[in-house]
Amino acid sequence: MTFKYIPGIPLVHPVVDRCNRGFWESINNHVLSIQRCQTCGLRLHPPRPMCPRCLATNMGWEPSPGRGVVHTWVNFVYDRAGYPGIKCPYAVATVELDEGVRILSNIVEMDPADVYIGMPVEAVFTDVNKELTLVHFKKRDK
C-alpha cells in the first residue's frame, strides 16, 4: 500500500525555466533548495521571478533540511481518479516546511490512509528515471 509508479507509463516532466532551474538542479543532487530573496530575505516556493514583498529580482537559493509537517493532503483511492502513471491509492500533500514555506509532493513509504494533518515528515529523493528526480516526503519520528 505504499507509493509506487507504474512502469511504462510516461510521467509528465517538469518545465524547467530560468526561474525554477535552481530548484531542479538541486533536486538532481538530492538536495532540497528553497528560493530566497537576497534583498529582503523572504523565502518563497514555488519559485518565481520577483519578490512579492519588495519587488527585487535577485533571487537566490538556500538548502533546506527538508523537515516539516503535513499541512493538508488528499488520497487518490480509485484508479480512474488518479494519474495513470502512479499506482492508486497514493497521497498528495502540501507540506509546511520548518522555514515556513509550503511545498506540494507525495507522501511515500506508508499507507496513504494513515497520513494525518500535522504529521511530521522529512524529504526523501526518488530517482524516477534517468532524467527525472523528485523530492518526496516520508513520516519521521518527532
Binding site: D17, R18, R48, P49, M50, T57
Partner: peptide, 14 residues
C-alpha cells in the same frame, strides 16, 4: 532575454 515571459512581464510592470 534569458528570462521567462512572466519574469519580463513583472519587470516591465515594476
Amino acid at each position: 532575454s534569458d528570462l521567462t515571459e512572466t519574469d519580463m512581464a513583472c519587470r516591465s510592470i515594476r
